[in-house]
Amino acid sequence: MWVYVLRRTLLLIPIFFAISVVIFSLIHLVPGDPIDSLLGPGSSKGDRAELLALYGLDKPLPMQYLYWLKDFITGDMGQSIIEKQPVADMIFYNLPFTMRLGLLSLAISFFLGIFLGIISAAAKNTFVDYIAMIIALLGVTVPAFWLGLILILAFSVNLGWFPVSGSGSFSHLVLPAVAVGLGGAGLVARVTRVSMLEMFNKDFVLLLYAKGLSRNVIIVKHVFRNALMPVITILGLRLGWILGGAVSIEIVFSRPGIGSMLLTALFRRDYPVVQASLIFLTMAVIIGAFITDIIYSYADPRVRDVYK
């Protein structure tokens, strides 16, 4: 088991290189550069060259990448061209906000989704099933930002239960996390339902009934427990999709975070910031998927044996 975990952890290193190369080269395809916006009117070619040299933008691309990589590994992510402060500081200020939002959204996706999935599988083809599945479908049919806006209208403006925007307390976190989490909950609910219905047809379920166990015990302790495996797999695979909504949600609720930071930087062509935040977001998703994978291989005794 530990060997497997170690092997998977080491695999993150080449993934990091691949991702950073891809992001680095893509960003340098973006037309225009921030230097133009820094240069006042009437500045000379010499001023421009000077600034380019200052940010290392005059070197060939692979060289720029190597410099960047060397700095990144030592924890120096460069300077924000616009904000004039170290990118690392910006990232570490914003990261906790995004992490909190992401974790709570994931928790909502998982638990709400599982709840909906179980009740709809248990009540297959009844009114309850249809209602639960319509809720689940709604989660996947609308963009997170729209849900966020509607939640603001309903719970902040009309009911006044939660603050409209900001990030101070837990109550600031609730609506954004629900807006992001509902989409994931829909996904989880659908996978849970399908995989539970598949499990119902397995031979072992017949024996459980024959043992005289109650339907509730069979559904929750056995059928659901078995159906959880595919749910965890899908959760890991679609983590990026589930958390993608967080970027727009940070804008909707004017929350600080890597997403809103990325977007601002993208508009201002602030390369170092865009680069670092993209890499952090992507790596967060990959590490999340990696953790679900480990959980998966631990939760299923059959898979556990394969990696022993």
């Binding site: 031979d203 072992f204 017949l206 024996l207 024959a210 043992k211 005289g212 166990l213």
Partner: peptide
């Protein structure tokens, strides 16, 4: 009733199913 039957099934009448290979819950 369903709950009375649960007390009979597995207690007074037991069942050994057709396929032992797949009749056990794989995760316990």
């Amino acid at each position: 009733s369903a709950s009375e039957m649960q007390k009979v099934r597995g207690a007074q009448i037991s069942f050994i199913p057709q396929n032992p290979m797949t009749s056990l819950d794989p995760v316990y």
